[in-house]
Design a protein around this nucleic acid. Structure first.
Lengths: 338, 338
DNA sequence: TTACGTCGCGCAAACGTTTCCAGGACCGTG
DNA sequence: CACGGTCCTGGAAACGTTTGCGCGACGTAA
């Protein structure tokens, strides 16, 4: 019942080798036998066994995507792009959710060493792992997707220009006439925190005093922490703009501001980062920085596969983010009213 | 360099067979040789080749999850649960995004016939496929996750009790004193549409005239269509409650209602379904039906693996949804005010 | 007719592991 | 001492495919 290359060979009265060559379109098979073999294969409903093929070719047509939490809407977008590209290239996408646990990251890397996948897309922050993976051996078949490559790893990366994103926000705030800006972010050691802050700082420096960075608060990437810390900030420091380095923080800040009688887009600007679905839907639509996540996923897979198959050299790719202006920071209406 | 079972055997002065038995913890190996082999394996950094194992055992430790759109927040939740369970059971999760195209569904089924995966979780609506897959052959290794099994397929399913969900909504509306309810949903042939409506109808019937179903509108599962159709409905029919069979529709309805000067939770009840992230965050927090999606994913994988490994019989599982009451339908405040 | 090139095809090894079967060492009992 | 049994180990086949090599047949040109 299970259609082998052998059963076909037997039915066609030829050897396995001929069947293999015929079905793979290789030369060295007469046109008549070729047609006969193709017909029989069709009749038997033959599907080549990918495992056996992989055993001899050395790789399965799988690429793994490692994310910290697929429930966070940033990652499905990457997954979507990655899956598209993988499908086009004849690969399937393996999803690994590490649940923010770094031991799971190492389990994911095992997928590579045990040859269960041909390559790996790493989309988890690598800042603090308890031990250092053997990048040397992993390098050819790993690429970072939407995250900077770990220091000294030499891994290729497809990422979004966080510094540019921070700068765009700063310039926008300055252009709208906001002056005293506070910065809210996740852990200080995260690359996203550092780079977005650096971009903001650059805009502040370039503003010639028009913009002032009056507070920097680092903590967690959660809405709860954002609400707490934004509340403290608003109580302690006179600010008229808040740049939260992530939309969840911004949503928290929005809550805290409302609780204190401040109105986003009125006497306070709030800007987020990521452009998650909720950013456009909340009470005051949120100005934010949209990341081309789908392109990140797609390009990362393309580059990975190119290197696996042709070991093409991998140059890094840095994609530009996109400022999305909404009501929470736009003061033009307020100005008109004056 | 590549550590084989052979290189270990050579280094330990034994045969491959002994190495295999030792490393798999099987009996029939002396304790001294066993320790020696384990030590050498560790020294050489040996990792078993999953492909070769799969070739002999007949299956790879992969299960595929087929979703129509990973960007839709309903599916990452399933994926999360599925990944958790798969990880616990020693499997990896393959993600297939069909982008709502039914030819992609068939490509996904090919994963099974070409033995690239051990089993498949189908999480796409199967109502209208252009041809019928060979369920007979697929049955042992496919289970539906969060979707009803296609008519006549005999596939096992882990799903959420949509009829109960609809009934809960109806009962809640009746209990709050709303009377004339309109129903909004996606395509009429979708099982979700039919079942949620049936549940609502049951509650209406049981209300003894307290509740009245005055309009049923079917179309698409999108926010845009929801806004349009809700607008038409509000203009044409006097209703005081809207049950949208999906949160996106409900969000659209919310917009349409506001545009007409109606206030959700005030002179109009709006209830959604799914409890997506945005439901709690929108201008008027939305009453909705939360689905235990994570459990769906988890249970589906558990059952699938149980059947693959022990071919355990698969009885269907129907999980209860959960009504989440928020401001958009709660009229207690309104009553108190009266 | 002979020699040579080309074409079509089969044989067998290889990929890395598991597993069945059998052989040998050793021990205890009769 | 002989015999049976248990325990440890090795040989070899098997999983399904790809691929290098060689062999025979056929055709063409000298």
């Amino acid at each position: 019942m299970a259609a082998n290359i052998k059963t076909i060979a037997a039915a066609a009265g030829v050897s396995c080798a001929t069947v293999s060559r015929a079905l793979n379109g290789q030369p060295g098979v007469g046109p008549r036998t070729r047609r006969r073999i193709e017909r029989i294969a069709r009749e038997q409903g033959y599907v080549p066994d990918a495992q056996a093929q992989a055993l001899v070719s050395g790789r399965l047509p799988f690429v793994g995507l490692v994310v910290p939490d697929i429930t966070n809407p940033y990652f499905p977008a990457i997954a979507r792009g990655a899956e598209e590209a993988a499908f086009e290239l004849g690969y399937s996408l393996l999803l690994v959710d590490t649940a923010w646990r770094s031991d799971r990251v190492f389990r994911a890397l095992d997928l590579l060493t045990s040859r269960r996948v041909a390559g790996l897309l790493l989309s988890v922050p690598m800042e603090r792992l308890e031990r250092t993976p053997d990048w040397e051996r992993l390098r050819p078949s790993v690429v970072m997707a939407g995250q900077p490559s770990p220091h000294g790893s030499g891994l290729g990366a497809v990422e979004v220009d966080d510094e540019l994103g921070g700068r765009l926000v700063g310039e926008h705030l300055a252009a709208c006439g906001w002056r005293r800006v506070g910065f809210l972010a996740g852990p200080r050691e995260d690359a996203a925190t550092r780079r977005r802050l650096a971009g903001l700082q650059a805009a502040v420096d370039a503003s010639g005093g028009a913009l002032d960075l009056v507070a920097v608060r680092c903590g967690e990437w959660t809405e709860g922490w954002g609400a707490e810390e934004a509340g403290r900030l608003l109580d302690q420091v006179p600010v008229d703009a808040l740049f939260a380095a992530n939309d969840l923080l911004a949503l928290g800040a929005l809550r805290a501001a409302e609780a204190r009688g401040r109105t986003a887009g009125g006497d306070l600007a709030i800007v987020g980062y990521d452009d998650i679905d909720a950013a456009a839907r909340c009470r005051v639509p949120l100005t934010t920085v949209a990341q081309p996540t789908r392109e990140v996923g797609r390009e990362a897979v393309r580059r990975l596969v190119a290197r696996i198959e042709n070991d093409a050299p991998l140059e890094d790719l840095r994609l530009p983010p996109n400022l999305v202006v909404r009501a929470s920071s736009d003061c033009l209406t307020a100005r008109k009213a004056i």
